[in-house]
Nucleic acid binder design. Structure first.
Length: 139
DNA sequence: GCCAACGTTGGC
DNA sequence: GCCAACGTTGGC
């Protein structure tokens, strides 16, 4: 299983909205690197849900419920989307400042290339974020 | 609201 | 195929 991170501005589509709708088509991606990641996603892959602009924190874990298909918002077959459904909300959101300050996490794509909207997350990074979100295991 | 970083476009 | 110009993103 692979780990990912997707970004969304809460004013456009928030975690709460995903929870409420129970599933969403992750479309509108118009960046080749992000697109390639979407294509690589497998069913049940785990996806961190990051709020950009407002909050700037990882708030929850989504799951890939349907692998890549033609993006319904365009006729251009270059672009794909996947279907995501909400998994668990983090016990405590993990903020960007915290990520930047953490030894394990400061190499995350989120820090290195903050503009990429669909990113890969390593297993070590995944586990570390979960540690931080569950509280007190500070380094 | 500002600005740096990045991706894309288009002229040559 | 290079590179300057431009638009967009996102942190602050």
């Amino acid at each position: 299983m692979a780990y990912w991170l997707v970004k969304s501005e809460p004013s456009a589509y928030s975690w709460d909205q995903l929870v409420k709708e129970k599933s969403t088509s992750w479309d509108g991606v118009r960046n080749y690197a992000a697109r390639n990641h979407l294509r690589t996603m497998k069913k049940n892959d785990a996806v961190f849900y990051y709020h950009s602009n407002e909050g700037t924190e990882i708030v929850g874990i989504a799951k890939v419920s349907k692998t890549a298909y033609q993006d319904p918002t365009t006729d251009n077959s270059n672009w794909v989307s996947v279907e995501l459904k909400p998994g668990k909300k983090l016990r405590r959101p993990v903020g960007l400042a915290e990520i930047k300050a953490d030894k394990t996490l400061k190499e995350m794509v989120l820090v290195k290339n903050s503009r990429l909207s669909v990113q890969q997350v390593t297993e070590a990074e995944w586990k570390r974020v979960l540690e931080l979100s569950s509280g007190d295991q500070d380094s």
